[in-house]
Structures are given as C-alpha cells and as structure tokens.
Simulated scan of single mutants.
Amino acid sequence: MARNKTTSRSKRHLIAKKDPKSPITEQYRTIRTNIQYASVDQAIRSIVVTSTGPMEGKSTTTANLAVVFAQQGKKTLLIDADLRKPTAHYTFQLPNTFGLTSVLTKQAELMDAVHMTDVENLFVLTSGPIPPNPAELLASVSMEYLLKEAYNLYDFILFDTPPVLTVTDAQVLANLADGSILVTSSGTTDRDGAIKAKEILTSAHAKLLGAVLNNKKADKDTHYYYYYAEH
C-alpha cells in the first residue's frame, strides 16, 4: 500500500511535473510500480482510470500517473475518454478542436490528433468535440482500431473515463484495456457505492488492479492517497 500526500489545492495540478522530487510524486511512482507488477502473466500496457462518482480525483490521478510513466522513459499516451466532462485539455493547456471523437468518427488520423506536451515522452489525445452518443462511440469498432494503432505507437496508454456508477463508458473501455483502477474519495464515496462499482467492472470482464483512496485525513493538515493492488 502506498501513501500520497496532497492538499485540496492540488486538485488537477500536475504535481508530478511541477515537483518531481516531492513525496506526493514519489507515491505516484509507487502506484506506477504496483501497476507494473500487478500481473506476472502479461505486461500491462493500457489502464482505464474511473471513479464511483464525480469529484473523486480520477482525472488528477490519471494525469499524474501519465507524467510518472513518461518520466520513466515510457512513451505514454493519455486519452481523455470522458466524453461528457473532459478535463485533459484544461490540465495540459491544449486545444480541443480535434481529439478522440474526431478519430473515432474518421475526421482525423490518430497521429494528427495527438498533442505533444512539455513533459518528455508524454502525449495527450484530448476528447475532441463532445458527441451526443459517447457510449456508442467508445463501443465502436473504430475504438478497437484506435487502441491497436496506439499499441504500435506508444509504450503505455491511460484512459480517463467517466464515473462507473453514472454511465456505461468506463465498462466499455475496461473490457478493452489490460487493467482498470477505481478512484474513490474518503468522506464522499460510500462503501455500497464502491462495492457496486467493483461489481460493475467485474461483470464487464475488467481486470480491476486496485483502488486509489483520495482525501483520507491522517491529521488536521495532511491528506493521503492510498493504493492497493488485487492479485
């Protein structure tokens, strides 16, 4: 189990980029290591990050994990697959005229839609224009083709997806990816909700690697992230 210090003001901040030597970043690296050793039979190259509900820190977790994977020297692609409330273009200060939806609807090629970032080895595919049918797009054959192409171009792929209890998008992608991580928040996520989210992912044949618990107070000034892997 790894612990990760943070404060509410670090929400959506790229602490792993801004302060790579901080204890918080070190804990993101610990999570990275746990992911890499979560499977002894198959190398994990794609991860879906989801949550039970909104405002639990899934996008912050995804972005910082992408940074630490890139810092390890892996050519990393973060795909903003939250086609309802995308945030990656804000986090990385990127345009969002074209993105995932553009590629899935064949309005753009993957390589043309992907953005380089100022973090070496880190690339971002923003959401693109928000569509009227997110779940259908993510479940399309085009999504399977996109993932196959991405495997040929990148070492590691992370999907930021909508909360699993609200829509089916995360289930669809979790079935395609090598593993999934569930982000929860202390004081926000209830136990029944977390159990239900796990059941939904399991029923979708997703390989749930573990969970991240955000905002767990250890004392009056400190918050932690916890991560555990299920083997």
Rank of each mutant, 00 (worst) to 15 (best):
P129T: 02
E136P: 11
T126A: 07
I130Y: 14
E136R: 12
D118Q: 05
L146N: 09
S127T: 04
E136D: 10
L125G: 01
L125H: 01
S140C: 11
P132L: 12
T126D: 08
D118P: 03
V119R: 03
N133L: 15
P132T: 15
E120K: 03
P132F: 09
H115R: 05
L146T: 13
A135K: 02
L122G: 01
G128E: 11
N133Y: 14
L125Y: 00
V124G: 00
A113F: 05
L122A: 00
M111G: 14
S127W: 03
L146P: 09
I130G: 15
D112C: 09
V124A: 00
S140V: 09
P129Q: 06
S140F: 07
E120P: 06
E144S: 14
V141A: 12
A135S: 07
H115T: 02
Y145T: 08
P131A: 15
P134H: 04
M116I: 08
L146R: 10
A113P: 08
N121L: 02
M143A: 08
V124D: 00
P132S: 12
E136W: 07
S142R: 04
S142I: 02
A135N: 04
V119E: 05
A113V: 04
A139T: 06
V114I: 13
M116K: 08
S140K: 11
T117G: 00
L146F: 14
F123C: 02
Y145A: 06
P134V: 03
L138E: 01
M111Y: 11
M116S: 10
D112G: 13
M116C: 09
P131F: 12
T126M: 09
V114C: 10
P132K: 12
L122K: 02
L125N: 03
A135Y: 03
P132M: 13
V124R: 00
V141Y: 11
E144P: 11
I130D: 15
L146C: 13
V119A: 01
V141T: 11
G128Y: 07
L137E: 09
I130L: 14
I130E: 14
V114R: 06
S140R: 09
M111E: 12
V141D: 13
D118A: 01
D112F: 07
P129R: 06
P129Y: 05
L137Y: 10
P131N: 14
P131C: 12
P132H: 09
N121V: 00
V114A: 12
T126G: 05
I130H: 14
L137Q: 13
V141I: 10
P134K: 05
V141S: 15
M116T: 06
Y145I: 08
Y145R: 10
P129H: 09
D112V: 06
I130W: 14
P129L: 08
M111V: 15
V124P: 00
S142K: 05
F123V: 02
P134A: 04
T117W: 00
T126N: 08
L125S: 05
V124S: 01
L137I: 06
M111S: 14
N133R: 15
H115W: 02
M116G: 11
N133G: 15
P131W: 12
V124I: 03
T117H: 01
I130V: 14
L137S: 10
D112A: 10
M143D: 07
M143N: 13
T117L: 01
P134L: 03
V141H: 15
G128D: 08
S140P: 08
L137G: 06
E120Y: 01
L138I: 02
M116P: 13
D118K: 00
S127H: 07
A135H: 04
E136S: 13
